[in-house]
């Protein structure tokens, strides 16, 4: 084995740790968020090095992209929120915050030292356990390989996600919807995106949005054979939605009621409906009848992509429609 790949891995790993440390300890919040997004991008590279292209795509689209956008949006709302409220109150708030912040940005030094020591002991134990695991084991890859033909897709990761462990994926879609319902239930969540659109951005979005929708469709389709799939496609779709929104496009009022909610629940609803309907054909729960796996998975993925895109865009925008 040549030394070059090892050197690259070492550099990547050290960069990860350095970025994480800086992201968590930088005094400036904006810088912290930017460093965190960089961490997500480097993680994407690490996943490529580990031959996990799906995770790399998801990490970059969701871990760095969507999470980063959510963090930046939250940061933007944290800062002007103060300047919009009553001047006097703001000044009081800010001084109060400054005073307490200096005293309490972090725990006291003795406590920090104690926590650090405890964590080092914990990591040593965890490291020992991981070392014990250092016997090559195939895991379940042989089993997945053996039954891939029955799954309706040719790509193992998609087969696990949408068929072998489809029940998890159904609930994962529910988690996304749940997060949005939770965000909407917070009556005070402020709005974003009501500012005037930038003309240049508007023009760019009109060009980009159709392209992104095409990319999303491609990602769903390719997921059956290669890395890709509903979650990556959904995040591209969500990004398209955000861009359109930022460039001034709005859902018409009549569409923000139940039609929007219908799009949001479509992924879970279609998945659950198909999963239950098969019981009527003498199949187990979520067990597709022979020959029907492929169209069923495609239908689920298309519905899921639409919902994921809509949910992610709605999460970014924040306030209720």
């Amino acid at each position: 084995m040549s030394l070059l790949p090892l050197a690259i891995d070492l550099v990547l790993a050290l960069t990860l740790l350095w970025l994480a440390w800086r992201a968590l300890n930088s005094p400036d919040l904006f810088r912290a968020v930017v460093l965190f997004i960089a961490l997500g991008l480097v993680l994407g590279l690490v996943w490529v090095r580990l031959d996990a292209v799906d995770i790399a795509l998801a990490e970059i689209a969701l871990g760095a992209g969507v999470t980063g956008a959510l963090l930046l949006a939250a940061l933007a709302k944290l800062q002007p929120a103060a300047s919009q409220t009553d001047e006097l109150q703001t000044a009081e708030l800010q001084t109060a915050e400054l005073q307490t912040d200096q005293a309490a940005v972090m725990a006291p030094i003795a406590l920090r030292l104690f926590i650090a020591l405890l964590l080092l002991a914990f990591l040593a134990g965890l490291g020992f356990a991981v070392w014990q695991l250092w016997v090559p084991a195939p895991g379940l890859s042989n089993l997945v390989e053996a039954r891939l033909d029955e799954s309706g897709v040719a790509y193992p990761v998609t087969a696990v996600l949408l068929n072998f462990r489809g029940y998890d994926t159904l609930l994962e879609l529910a988690v996304l919807l749940l997060a949005l319902i939770g965000v909407w239930s917070l009556s005070t969540a402020p709005h974003l995106g009501d500012e005037e659109p930038e003309p240049a951005l508007a023009a760019l979005s009109r060009l980009l949005a159709p392209l992104m929708i095409l990319v999303a469709a491609y990602l769903v389709w390719v997921g059956a054979y290669a890395p890709g799939g509903a979650f990556q496609a959904g995040s591209v779709l969500g990004a398209a939605g955000v861009l359109l929104r930022l460039s001034g496009w709005r859902l018409s009022l009549s569409a923000t009621g139940w039609p929007l909610r219908l799009v949001l629940v479509l992924g879970v609803a279609v998945f659950a409906f198909i999963g239950l309907a098969v019981i009527g054909f003498d199949q187990p729960l979520l067990g597709y009848p022979p020959g029907w796996a492929k169209p069923a998975i495609l239908a689920i993925e298309l519905a899921a992509t639409l919902s994921i895109g809509a949910i992610l865009a709605a999460l970014f925008i924040g306030g209720r429609p």
Binding site: L140, V144, N163, F164, R165, Y167, D168, Q283, P284, G287
Partner: peptide, 10 residues
């Protein structure tokens, strides 16, 4: 679930 059975399925 799905008729696969553990350890492949849930």
């Amino acid at each position: 679930v799905g008729g696969w059975g553990a350890p492949l399925g849930i």
